[in-house]
Amino acid sequence: MFILKKFGQLLVTVILVTLFASLLLELLPGDPTEVLIPSGSDQQREDLRQELKLDQSFAVRYSTWLGNFATGDLGNYYTVSSDRPVSDRLWQSLPVSLLLMFYAQMLALIFAIPLGVLTAYRKGTWFDRTSNTAAFAMLAIPNFALGFLLQYYLGVKLGWFKTSGYASPSESPIEHLQYMILPTITLAVGQIAIYMRLLRSDMIATLQQDFILMAKAKGLKSKRILFRHALRPSSLTLLTVAGLNIGTLIGGALIVEVVFALPGMGLMLFEAIGRRQIVAFQSMVAVIAILYILVNFAVDLLYTVLDPRIRNANKS
């Protein structure tokens, strides 16, 4: 029942998102084949027009794409010389984006959780106020601006990290990290601020609870009280927001990939729009939407791990 509901939700979202995205591309003036294969012959262009059903209605084109997508055919990425299946490029770029988002999320949580816990514990102190100010500053910097700054100072001037390009972890793990560090930091900074402040306010509420005083009266160490007793019941909002934030994170990742020339979904999408690759664009948007929903589904499952009371409510 739960699964069925989630699946319905998934279907509706994918259709709405891709419909909207392709309608936007429809609005661009001119013949797409001129952008797709600018140096192609008239014959080639006519063939492509046939294949893309450009002489037919939008409804036909969209439903053809949807039908193909449902059966796993993501369409082609068109060039003059050869047409490559979108799925090939997807398999190359999807892991890059996923890794980037994963690293950024982990980095954000690794910093935000202890900071959130400690600022709540030391509420009103010098440490709390400084962290608070720093968080606001971090929130105020746009992703791309921070990206350029890091690229220039840490990459170009100091030469510590690579500023553009990519190596997969299986090729060379060290190089992979060198390429990924700056994009990860760029993407994570804003999230650290959000997560830290969220956790701080929930922790402050939890620390007022009787069961915290009881834990103290048991003689437990502060570290255990904070991280074993208080953190878990305080992290539900954080988890929800971290899930919802995947949307923001995807958007951020797309920008960061362009800034750092990381060959992920963002860069691919950017290219697809520039080259009027309608089919590729639609398929990628659909894949991103599905990912988004799957992550939120995982978040729902995580709730029940964090709070046993929800587990019971779901059962009954």
Partner: peptide, 28 residues
């Protein structure tokens, strides 16, 4: 100080709270 108190708390002296609904950690 708190470190010295911790030797007493729970071990030498303990406390029972008013409301059992809120005195236990709900997720443990």
């Amino acid at each position: 100080n708190d470190t010295e108190y911790r030797e007493l708390w729970g071990d030498e002296m303990a406390m029972i709270f008013q409301d059992p609904m809120t005195a236990l950690n709900p997720v443990m």
